[in-house]
């Protein structure tokens, strides 16, 4: 975000960018398309420079060239295999790093999620001495029944699933209320910039 005390040129640049995006609300137009493409280009440019300074340079220049730690050459080159897809017949080798990443991610999920899951389940088993504890458990069981597709939803399970559906609607309603506030906060922030920092109203 521009600082309220930024140079007028900087404030004007940010204001023009803001208005160009808002112009889309009237209809799709050339100015909107221009800033849309400019944004993508600039983001990619930032990623390029950032990637060099923060991922590649420390490994290639510092670790490999200065410290002679050539061990990192292997994973670096392995990662570069994804570019093999640009070469005829290179689709196979390009899949190797993807296989590694997905496998590593799966390993992470299998390693760390069970504990989180257990804490969530055990945290729901509260003594039924308070209405709130009973309600948390009831909405949890109802919600789980609603997502139960492996057995037919009949009898008590169906009633619980119906209750669960209402509970999930309630939860999504709470998130929707939050979403309205969140999106409007962003909008108010942009308006505050235009009206106060730019127009000095």
């Amino acid at each position: 975000m521009p600082s309220p005390s930024a140079h007028p040129f900087a404030t004007w640049t940010a204001a023009v960018c803001t208005l160009a995006v808002f112009s889309y609300l009237y209809r799709d137009n050339a100015l909107w398309r221009a800033v849309e493409h400019l944004y993508i280009g600039l983001s990619a440019g930032y990623g390029l420079g950032y990637g060099w300074h923060n991922f590649l340079e420390p490994i290639i220049v510092t670790d490999m060239i200065h410290r002679h730690q050539y061990g990192y050459a292997l994973p670096l080159l392995f990662g570069l295999l994804v570019f093999a897809r640009y070469v005829r017949g290179g689709d196979g080798p390009a899949r190797l790093p993807i296989g590694l990443w997905v496998g590593y991610g799966a390993g992470y999920a299998l390693t760390y999620l069970p504990r989180t899951l257990w804490l969530q389940v055990s945290g729901s088993m509260l003594p039924p001495d308070r209405l709130s504890n009973v309600l948390v458990l009831a909405t949890l069981v109802g919600g789980l029944c609603y997502f139960l597709f492996t057995v037919g939803q009949r009898g008590p399970i169906r009633r619980m699933a119906t209750f669960g559906r209402y509970a999930i609607m309630l939860a999504l309603g709470a998130s929707f209320g939050g979403a309205v506030l969140y999106r409007y906060t962003i909008f108010l922030g942009r308006m505050a910039f235009l009206l106060k920092d730019w127009l000095h109203l």
């Binding site: 989180t116 804490l119 969530q120 055990s122 945290g123 948390v136 939860a171 709470a174 998130s175 939050g178 979403a179 506030l181 969140y182 906060t185």
Partner: peptide
């Protein structure tokens, strides 16, 4: 958390996995 996410993280606050939360702009 952003306002939209405040309800989503409540289960983790209830179990103590999250020590505390600052919900949204409020």
């Amino acid at each position: 958390a952003i306002s939209m996410e405040a309800p989503v993280i409540q289960p983790f606050v209830a179990t103590g996995q999250i020590a505390a939360t600052i919900p949204g702009i409020r």
